[in-house]
Nucleic acid binder design. Structure first.
Length: 569
RNA sequence: GCGCCUAUAGCUCAACUGGAUAGAGCACCAGGCUUCGAACCUGGGGGUUGGGGAUUCGAGCUCCUCUAGGCGCGCCA
């Protein structure tokens, strides 16, 4: 059964699907014009895998969408779409009430997918789907350098890093950045808090400032400061002391944050310091730009952004009456810079308590002449449960769970998976005890086990069946794959690229996490039903091909999530 | 008071952008290893998708309204 083979190697899975969709598109348009319908809004045929295998391999609801626009009977349209055979690689196409069109592919179609994975390896699934969306810039974490990263920032960093990886995988040129809020009164407060610890250490008992930072990490920093500078700051003028201690604390804390993120496998293309925006005159420049564009006005001695013009519910101050720029002015400078660097589209991932900031940020970007080019995602709250009891956290009391603690307790793999496994906008309940005590039940182990299991089979095959392994790598026998369980795995593999692209476009990394679980499930089912290393050499080779392909895709998907794919567990 | 997020199985969450019988994990019940990794698999119970209304061939998803929880509403960051 090699009649279609040449075609499969020429056209990849997605190319074939696109060609099929295009053909159906043509049929739909032809039908429309035969009815004298020339509407501007074209109905696009979206072809997707069926959820229920009984419905065939692919289906489209395009006939029903068209029926609505054209005021026609959906089943009639579906029938017309399915009327004529002679579609490449299609074994059967039929219309079904109320108006679905179901398509079943020829058997050889699926083995072609395995061949494609083995050819492309780690590149399999990459596409150009989202190429036109870029260049894109994703900003996330953007923490105050006043203490260790907390768990919510762990969530947004996992979210951001995975989203960036997915966008790139789908062909969108994307860069990642974080912004260090190292300016303003909070840095003074940090300096004063550090000084209190410092002076106390040197036996000049000094209370923490009101609303100061009470975390113990400042005691450690104070010790480091004593070691470096001795007692010199006890007698220094306040301004000088603040500047020096602020810088000292900021540098140390940013380094800590960077180290934590590094360990969490989160890396940024660029770190931007708010302080440098102040120092370089970038803020003044941005404000001037906004003024030149006519979007600011003066009132009560302050300079205001006319943000209500762009959908905000009130205007915002850019320059205070005492001449100091606000946080928003710095953000204007930063976003102006992002745009100036040629980014067509910006995504900011903010913490849950910043949703009130969305409107003014969007207003800034619109005022700068790029309406609609900023998208703000919120990483919703993470609450903790310890033994059935919900723990509410307060930063003031220092009762916060840090990202580092989470990594220490549940490991990087589980933490990344856990954070990504849920939709960004859903509130997350993190059951610490369950994660720690019963970590083997975490879904991430299920997926990793699948990968390790395949690795084990391949090791076994290497002991005395090298020739079959070699045949398998070349996909020489994949036409033998036709068991229900085998096809289920292949169907899942085939959907990988589309899943990533759609999930990236929907900003829904959790779908990739879900995908890894589904693929692992399909594989475990295959493993249970089918003996890989059997007596039939061609069949063994075919199934080894499937194993290699599955392992490849599992590893790629886990890589997107920042989760390791172990050879053994 | 205004705005944003959320409400789906006992618990934690999905549902491919409006499609076919709402699905997973955990928990519970009953099974499956003499063999490639049982960290696995098979089957079962469990639902008025918070309430009500609207839109249409079709709504967990869109619109209105009510209820409940979370968060925000500063010339703070």
């Amino acid at each position: 059964m090699h009649h279609g083979r040449a075609n499969y190697s020429v056209m990849g899975y997605h190319e074939q699907l696109d060609a099929l969709a295009t053909e159906l598109d043509t049929r739909l348009r032809r039908l429309a014009s035969s009815w004298g319908i020339h509407e501007g809004q074209a109905i696009e045929v979206a072809l997707g895998p069926t959820r229920d295998p009984n419905h065939g391999d692919f289906a489209t609801a395009a006939a029903m969408a068209a029926a609505k626009a054209w005021k026609r009977d959906p089943f009639e349209i579906a029938t017309a779409l399915a009327s004529d055979g002679s579609l490449q690689s299609v074994a059967q196409i039929q219309a079904v009430r109320p108006g679905f069109v179901n398509i079943t592919m020829v058997p050889g179609f699926w083995s072609g997918v395995v061949r494609e994975v083995l050819q492309r390896g780690a590149d399999y699934g990459k596409s150009h789907e989202l190429e036109s969306r870029g260049p894109m810039l994703v900003e996330f974490v953007s923490a105050n350098p006043t203490g260790p990263l907390v768990v919510v920032q762990g969530r947004s960093s996992a979210l951001g890093a995975t989203l960036v990886a997915m966008l790139r995988f789908a062909g969108c040129q994307t860069s990642s950045e974080t912004y260090v809020n190292d300016a303003g009164t909070q840095l003074d407060l940090l300096a004063d808090s550090l000084y209190a610890r410092y002076a106390t250490l040197l036996e000049r008992e000094t209370p923490l400032p009101v609303d100061g930072y009470a975390g113990e990490y400042l005691i450690d920093l104070a010790q480091a400061l004593v070691a470096r500078d001795g007692e010199q700051w006890l007698s220094a003028p306040q301004d000088e002391r603040r500047a020096a201690l602020g810088r000292f604390a900021r540098d140390a804390i940013v380094e800590q944050q960077r180290a934590d993120l590094d360990r969490f496998r989160v890396h940024f293309d660029r770190w931007t310091s708010e302080a440098t925006l102040h120092d370089s005159g970038a803020i003044e420049k941005a404000v001037q730009e906004l003024r030149a564009l006519g979007h600011v006005y003066e009132k009560e001695g302050a300079l205001w952004l006319h943000s209500t013009e762009f959908g905000d519910d009130k205007d915002r101050v850019l320059i205070r009456s005492d001449g100091r720029p606000t946080y928003l002015a710095a953000d204007a400078a930063y976003h102006a810079d992002k745009l100036r660097r040629g980014n067509k589209y910006l995504i900011d991932i903010l913490g849950p308590d910043h949703h009130g900031y969305i409107a003014r940020l969007s207003a800034i970007v619109a005022a700068l002449g790029h309406p609609g080019s900023l998208e703000v995602l919120l990483a919703q709250h993470v609450t903790f449960k310890r033994g059935g009891e919900t723990v509410s956290m307060s930063k003031r009391a220092g009762d916060v769970v840090t990202l580092r603690e989470v990594m220490d307790q549940v490991g990087v793999d589980a933490a990344r998976f856990f954070f990504i496994n849920r939709a960004p906008e859903s509130h997350l309940v993190f059951d610490m005890e369950l994660a720690v005590e019963q970590s083997a039940k975490n879904p991430v182990y299920y997926v990793q086990y699948g990968h390790a299991r395949i690795a084990s089979i391949l090791r076994k095959a290497g002991e005395g069946r090298e020739h079959l392994l070699e045949r398998a790598r070349q996909a020489l026998d994949v036409d033998r794959l036709n068991d229900k369980a085998e096809i289920a795995v292949i169907r899942r593999i085939a959907d990988f690229g589309r899943t990533v692209a759609r999930a990236a476009d929907a900003r829904a990394p959790h779908r990739v996490a879900e995908y890894t679980h589904a693929l692992a499930t399909d594989f475990h089912g295959f493993y249970t039903d089918c003996v890989v290393l059997g007596d039939d050499e061609a069949l063994t080779s075919a199934r080894l091909s499937l194993c290699i392909a599955t392992k490849t895709v599992l590893a790629s998907a886990l890589d997107l999530l920042g989760v390791s794919a172990p050879e053994t567990m």
